[in-house]
Amino acid sequence: MSRYKLVRWAVVLGMALAVSLAHAQDRGFITIASTTSTENSGLFESIIPQFEDETGIEVRVVAVGTGQALRIGCNGDADAVLVHAPAAEQQFIDDGCGVDRREIMYNDFVIIGPGNDPAGVADADSATEAFGIIADAEAPFASRGDDSGTHKKELGIWSEAGVDPSGSWYRELGSGMGAALNTAAGMDAYIMADRGTWISFDNRQNLEILFEGDPILFNQYGSVLVNPEAHDVKHDLAMVWHDWLVSEQGQAAIGAYRLRGQQLFTPNAE
């Protein structure tokens, strides 16, 4: 093969690759910024195909922490967000980034720790008491530390418990839910996690659920549209998704989702 042929081949091949990539992205779709916990739970894999069948609109989910999801929405890089941090969602709207917040569903958080429960969290009467016990015992506690919805929730409970968590027992990881669980399992630490991620999480090692059921641990999900006046987003298509989530079909799809035999999300749209 002469060098000209070889070079020409390489150029043709490279162009073909690039064109094939450019082609792959030209259909009617919307982009949703959501949280890792929702993605990791498998909920989207279950309900999005139903939505796509009914409407013909493709949904692309970018799963990040709540803080980053709202940031992406605020930059206009997504058409809607689906997150679980009511206060932050309100701020998002107040900042002019989003419009039309709707409550969709909730799941709950659980307090997880090593099976032998060295601090004795299992006997607590409330989540705040459980946190107080961990702090008194200075038992290792793994915090997401990533400004996510879960992290905000955890900080809220510490503040309810009157504890300013610090010291070598309190470990801020700065990682997603699954990664944080992996780390907690590795160092036998207590951790607060959403039930969905926990149920689908396989690398539990010694970890078990030690405390659950306190209403303060309920975790409300909201859907917010990105403000169409701020950015050139696909508002109409996103509205279809937004409406579908609170519709009878959407709510039924959410309630019907089972992971390992357990319902993870309770639909509660008004």
Binding site: A24, Q25, T31, T36, E39, N40, F44, E45, R60, V61, V62, A63, V64, G176, M177, G178, A179, L181, N182, T197, S200, F201, D202, N203, R204
Partner: peptide, 25 residues
């Protein structure tokens, strides 16, 4: 890329996702 299933999910982001799900195997 955003690790969007079927659109921008590549080997490495899929590996990171499965690790986060605890599916180490």
């Amino acid at each position: 890329g955003g690790n969007i299933a079927g659109v921008t999910r590549v080997m490495t982001t899929a590996i990171a996702l499965e690790t986060n799900k605890g599916n180490l195997t």
